[in-house]
């Protein structure tokens, strides 16, 4: 019978090369009973479960060690926090960089759009086009005697045509 540790750990005798007494000595081939099976390895080993109650064993409280442990943990966390805090500007800079580049791209796009719209507006307001539209609407430029400029004009009123 052996315990698990005993089983897996080789005994000093085994380590020194001595054969453990596992059974009766192996008879010579001529003396063997041919009807008997050969013994299996470790056939003579029996396991036995032994109940051990360690509940009454209690680790002795060591306030000094506990304090040291907490100190180390706190120091590590503090160091981690400092390192994290030190990295915050970099992280924020990177995030703001993303945002800034997006805004720059957007600004460029809006500027391009504005220029395109300005061109469109200028094309639509070209005198040639306006005159063509006016002709289609049968509009004519008033003659000079039809226009009276208002000196004390209200806002927006430049001249009147009668």
């Amino acid at each position: 019978m052996a315990t698990m540790p005993a089983f897996w750990k080789r005994t000093p005798a085994h380590a020194s090369g001595q054969q453990p007494p596992t059974g009766p000595p192996d008879p010579l081939r001529a003396q063997r009973n041919p009807f008997l099976l050969r013994p299996l390895p470790q056939e003579g080993v029996y396991f036995h479960c032994k109940k051990i109650d360690n509940s009454r064993l209690v680790r002795e409280t060591d306030p000094h060690t506990r304090g040291a442990t907490w100190s180390v943990a706190g120091a590590c966390l503090s160091l981690l926090a400092v390192l994290a805090l030190a990295q915050i500007p970099n992280v924020l800079t990177t995030l703001e960089g993303y945002r800034l580049e997006n805004l720059r791209t957007e600004e460029r796009r809006y500027l391009d759009e504005r220029r395109a719209l300005e061109l469109q507006e200028a094309t639509l307001l070209s005198p040639e086009r306006l005159e063509k539209l006016a002709q289609e609407q049968n509009l004519v430029t008033p003659s000079s005697r039809q226009v009276i400029h208002l000196d004390s004009r209200p806002d927006g009123a430049v001249a009147m045509v009668h």
Partner: peptide, 13 residues
């Protein structure tokens, strides 16, 4: 010179 990430998004210029 535009610093980009792996997806070619701009980070810094």
């Amino acid at each position: 010179r535009l610093l980009t990430d792996v997806k070619r998004r701009g980070i810094d210029q």
